[in-house]
Design a protein around this nucleic acid. Structure first.
Lengths: 213, 213
DNA sequence: ATATAACGGAGCGACCCGCTCCGCAATCAC
DNA sequence: GTGATTGCGGAGCGGGTCGCTCCGTTATAT
């Protein structure tokens, strides 16, 4: 595969562009494993970059997290799109859940309330939520998803399994996949299923969790 | 209910005995909600007690955590005993899982590796593990638990749902119960279940997680 | 009235963390 | 070649936190 397809910048500008990506990738990895209060220095080190390089792009740790939140929402939206492209509504939903869990950026949730909620985050979140709603609605209409499970229940699942261990091993991944499979089996529509207890999760909870107005 | 059944100490000795319990209860609450790196001062405050009172009982934060670990293991063992007393093997298992999750002290797991592993912890853990094994074995023999789920898979479930939010609300409890019900439905033995992917969790993982020799 | 036992909490020393500042190296303009 | 520009790394500053100690106070016992 040719690396010269897109017009490549040269010299320092190329390095800068690469660092841009390195920083974002490192930030995502560190935050999803260590939690959102991981030191910024850890991200710079993981990216193989000086601290100043990071701060030249994001004036503040908060800015960086906000950017990651937007990127995560876009990833979830993309996963939902793929799910809608799938032929089988159930397989689409299952794949959606698996991808969201694997991406795992929901580990930013614990920081909710700590950082300001930007318009960009609102926009990306809305789009992501709408698509997720469609994925779930399609599964419901096909009668493959248990009737008493709502979109927010699915959110809950993804959030629950979003966080990784400080140093994720293959075994941890394996174990998480087993648990998710368990949950998926529990989500399937079946006559003998118990009814889910209590009330479905509310949208207000998420609004409160983040700092929506 | 009479409060004078057991011979009551008076004055300061009574206060000391009460504080003993207050400190332990507060420590459990704070650690399960804030995580094991919560400040010791938060525990004292929650117990309505001075910091010195806490340190007079446990010379070190580590000692306190070790004590809590032992108590948690004993709670799990008690829950397993109750499960074995139940008439229905499935209801016993389900109740066991629910109780363990509700108790929630598995949120100490993230601290694993940070603190030393004491003989007391080893003894309590072994007893708890043996009883859990029996609960699961009985469910397997009755054919009500899916064949490819092991005792360690159950451990995984309890561990996964063990941690609470910083300020747990009724809604959070409600949501967690829904998720656990989902998992329980997935754990039931059924012809149409998918096979759990990958390999069962290994005991070595837990040995490594804690600092066993 | 004196001795004793338990208490509360201010504060010490040792961290850690976000962020700035500055000297250096690579590249560009001419 | 030479000076200007751009991006880089990382030491270190100011502030905040946390585990733990120390000591003055208060309640009980004799």
């Amino acid at each position: 595969m040719s690396t010269s397809e897109r017009p490549r910048k040269r010299g320092r500008q190329a390095e800068a562009a690469r660092n841009d990506q390195l920083v974002l990738a490192a930030a995502r990895e560190v935050f999803t494993t260590q939690g959102a209060d991981a030191p910024v220095a850890a991200i710079a080190e993981r990216a193989g970059v000086g601290i100043a390089t990071l701060y030249r792009r994001y004036g503040t740790k908060e800015e960086l997290i906000q950017k990651l939140a937007v990127l995560a929402a876009e990833q979830y939206a993309a996963a939902a799109s793929r799910a809608l492209d799938a032929d089988d509504p159930w397989e689409g939903l299952a794949q959606y859940i698996r991808e969201c869990v694997a991406f795992g950026s929901f580990s930013l949730a614990p920081i909710a309330g700590t950082i300001a909620f930007t318009p960009e985050m609102a926009a990306a979140g809305e789009r992501s939520d709408e698509l997720a709603e469609k994925v779930v609605a399609r599964a419901h209409q096909a009668g493959v998803l248990r009737a008493d499970a709502t979109t927010l229940d699915i959110h809950l699942v993804v959030e629950q399994f979003g966080r990784r261990a400080p140093v994720p091993t293959d075994e941890d991944d394996n174990n998480r996949e087993r648990l998710v499979s368990l949950v998926l089996d529990g989500l399937k529509a079946r006559p003998e299923n118990t009814t889910l207890p209590g009330n479905p999760p509310t949208a207000e909870r998420y609004a409160r969790l983040w700092n929506k107005p």
